[in-house]
C-alpha cells in the first residue's frame, strides 16, 4: 500500500536557524496523525512546507505518489487538495463568513456561487455557524472564527487536512465535536493530519502521535 503522504529528509532553515533537520514522516490513507512538541520546535513550519507555503531547502514531499516539491509543479493545483487551518485563522476580514468559506471553491475550483454556497452552508450548519452566515469575522468570538477557518478549509474537500493548533480557541464541548468531525473525515475518503498543541488531551482522536523534539530550534507561527 502506498502512503498518502511521504516526507523524506526534509530540511528547512530561516537564515542561520535550522528549523527542520531531516524530517521523515509517512502517513497512510485515512490516518489521523497528531504532532506534538515544544513551542518553537517547527511544527507549524512543517505544515507550511507540506502546503508549499515555505520553500524547502532539501528533501522531498510526496503526495499520493507525486513529488510535489519538484520544480515545474503547479502549486495551485497541489494546494487545492491540501486544506490548512492556520493557528491565527487568517480569515479575510473584508468578507462575510459565507464569502470566506466559498472563495476557494468559487475561484480555485470553479464552482458556481450557488453550488459553493450550498456546500458552504451545509458545513456551517454542521459546525453550528448557520446563523453567522452573513457576519464579518471581526464580529465573531475566537472560537467561532476558528470554526469558520475549519469550514473554509473543509469546503475545498481536501484529500489532506493540516490543522495548526486546531482546538486552541474552542471550549471542551466544541473541541469534542470538532474532533468528531475531523475523525469522521479521517474515516471517510480523507485523511487528516492534525496538530493540536493544546494540553487538554491532544492525542484523543489521533491514531498516531509523533513527538517533535529539538526544542533548540524556533519555528514561526503560521
Amino acid at each position: 500500500m502506498t502512503a498518502a503522504l511521504e516526507i523524506e529528509a526534509l530540511h528547512k532553515s530561516f537564515g542561520n536557524l535550522e528549523v527542520l533537520r531531516g524530517i521523515d514522516l509517512e502517513l497512510a490513507e485515512h490516518e489521523v496523525v497528531c504532532l506534538i512538541g515544544a513551542s518553537g520546535s517547527g511544527k507549524s513550519t512543517l505544515l507550511r512546507c507540506v502546503n508549499l507555503l515555505e520553500p524547502i531547502d532539501a528533501g522531498r514531499i510526496v503526495l499520493h505518489g507525486a513529488v510535489i516539491t519538484a520544480g515545474g509543479i503547479d502549486v495551485n493545483r497541489v494546494r487545492r487538495g491540501i486544506g490548512i487551518v492556520f493557528q491565527s485563522f487568517n480569515l479575510f476580514p473584508h468578507m462575510s463568513v459565507v464569502d470566506n468559506v466559498t472563495l476557494g471553491p468559487r475561484k480555485a475550483l470553479g464552482l458556481s456561487t450557488s453550488e459553493a454556497e450550498v456546500r458552504g452552508e451545509e458545513l456551517l450548519e454542521r459546525f453550528g455557524l448557520a446563523d453567522k452566515r452573513d457576519e464579518y469575522p471581526d464580529r465573531l468570538s475566537g472560537g467561532q472564527q476558528q470554526r469558520v477557518a475549519i469550514v473554509r478549509a473543509l469546503a475545498m474537500q481536501p484529500a489532506l487536512l493540516l490543522l495548526d493548533e486546531v482546538t486552541s480557541a474552542l471550549d471542551r464541548a466544541r473541541r469534542r465535536s470538532a474532533r468528531g468531525h475531523s475523525r469522521a473525515r479521517g474515516r471517510g475518503n480523507d485523511d487528516a493530519h492534525r496538530d493540536p498543541r493544546d494540553e487538554l488531551r491532544p492525542r484523543r482522536g489521533a491514531s498516531r502521535v509523533l513527538p517533535r523534539r529539538r526544542a533548540d530550534t524556533r519555528g514561526r507561527p503560521a
Binding site: 507550511r48 502546503n51 507555503l53 502549486v75 495551485n76 493545483r77 494546494r79 487545492r80 491540501i82 486544506g83 490548512i84 492556520f86 491565527s88 487568517n90 480569515l91 479575510f92 472563495l103 476557494g104 475561484k107 480555485a108 475550483l109 473554509r152 475545498m156 503560521a222
Partner: peptide, 20 residues
C-alpha cells in the same frame, strides 16, 4: 498571512491580489 491563507486555498497570485 492573508495572502498565505488565499494561496493555501489554491488561488493564484492574481486572484489573491484581486479578491483578498
Amino acid at each position: 498571512s492573508q495572502a498565505a491563507a488565499a494561496r493555501s486555498l489554491g488561488l493564484t497570485h492574481g486572484q489573491t491580489l484581486r479578491f483578498v
